[in-house]
């Protein structure tokens, strides 16, 4: 549309509006840049407030200490394993169920739907779920990390909506008339046409597994099974760092310069934030596009 003579008021409004956006941008961006800079700056300068934006007194000691730490690597390995296995299980449960629910000729569709949606609003709660997982003998096993959240109702709904709106009904009907079985139809036609939604689902669930800590906190006590987030919790929140990290194990000029334990702890913290979030940062461009799509498909239904 063509706007002739923009009024004075509209021009003022435009300036105001762009200022609002610029402020939002700075507020969100600044802490992120600060973390990156702090992770490679001299911790003494960071702690005393002399590093404001660009890294000062560049050192990679923090990353070195993190890389030398076996707990973090075990955590990383475990998290990758839980994420891959967990996401595979999520897809195995979600996609076929969503497809079945998307079929208008599926008798009992509403009953199943109601049964799933009900759990969104009411649940047994933390303690009965914990006791169940315990009685199934899953405490301190990998199953406690992947089975109690094998599916999310919201994701099933998003997926079902996608199948309903993007798969042409004629295609399904034609396949059925040609004598194609539902299973064959699903694997040969539906799945190949659904790459975007499978990506959305894999990313939704995958990020959930990568970032989750609570199930690990209540179900795991064996350190060797700890996912990355629990190791991070010890370092970032409980501020517990083994002597392996802060001790004078690492030699070199930089290490001896940093004899202050608090300084070493600080630089490790910022480095660990970056390292643990790195995989997500790398896939962020995909995440953003697909996640936005996912939220919008969800909002059509909701």
């Amino acid at each position: 549309m063509v706007v002739k003579n923009e009024s004075k008021f509209d021009q003022v409004f435009k300036v105001f509006n762009y200022s609002v956006l610029a402020i939002a941008l700075i507020i969100v961006l600044y802490p992120l840049i600060y973390i990156v800079s702090a992770s490679i700056s001299d911790p003494a300068l960071v702690n005393s407030g002399k590093m404001w934006f660009f890294p000062k007194g560049i050192t990679f000691e923090g990353y070195k200490r993190v890389f030398d730490n076996s707990e973090i690597w075990i955590g990383y390995r475990n998290t990758i394993f839980y994420t891959v296995l967990g996401t595979a299980i999520n897809l195995f449960v979600t996609l076929p169920a969503a497809y079945a629910l998307s079929r208008k000729d599926f008798v009992g569709r509403n009953i199943f739907m109601a049964m799933f949606v009900f759990t969104m609003f009411f649940s047994g709660g933390l303690i009965p779920t914990y006791l169940l997982v315990k009685s199934l003998g899953m405490v301190n096993t990998i199953w406690a990390m992947v089975l109690p959240n094998a599916a999310a109702v919201w994701n099933i709904i998003i997926c079902m909506t996608f199948f309903q709106v993007t798969i042409p009904k004629e295609l399904e009907e034609a396949a059925i008339i040609d004598g194609c079985s539902t299973t064959k139809l699903f694997f040969k036609i539906i799945i190949p046409l659904s790459a975007p939604i499978i990506a959305v689902m894999a990313l939704f669930y995958g990020v959930g597994h990568w970032n989750g800590y609570f199930n690990a906190l209540i179900y795991l006590s064996d350190q060797n099974l700890y996912p990355l987030q629990l190791v991070l919790r010890q370092i970032l929140v409980l501020q517990e760092m083994g002597s392996q990290m802060t001790g004078s194990g690492a030699a070199g000029a930089a290490a001896s310069a940093m004899h202050n334990k608090a300084e070493i702890a600080a630089i490790i913290k910022y480095a660990v934030m970056i390292i643990s979030t790195l995989p997500i940062i790398i896939i962020y461009p995909f995440l953003q596009r697909f996640f936005v799509k996912g939220v919008m498909i969800g909002s059509i239904k909701g």
Partner: peptide
Amino acid sequence: ELYLFILPAVLYFVIFHYIPMYG
């Protein structure tokens, strides 16, 4: 076959959501 498709999800919700509700 559609019932087979939805079976894993039904099992999941019964075991991890409805049994705790009973519990």
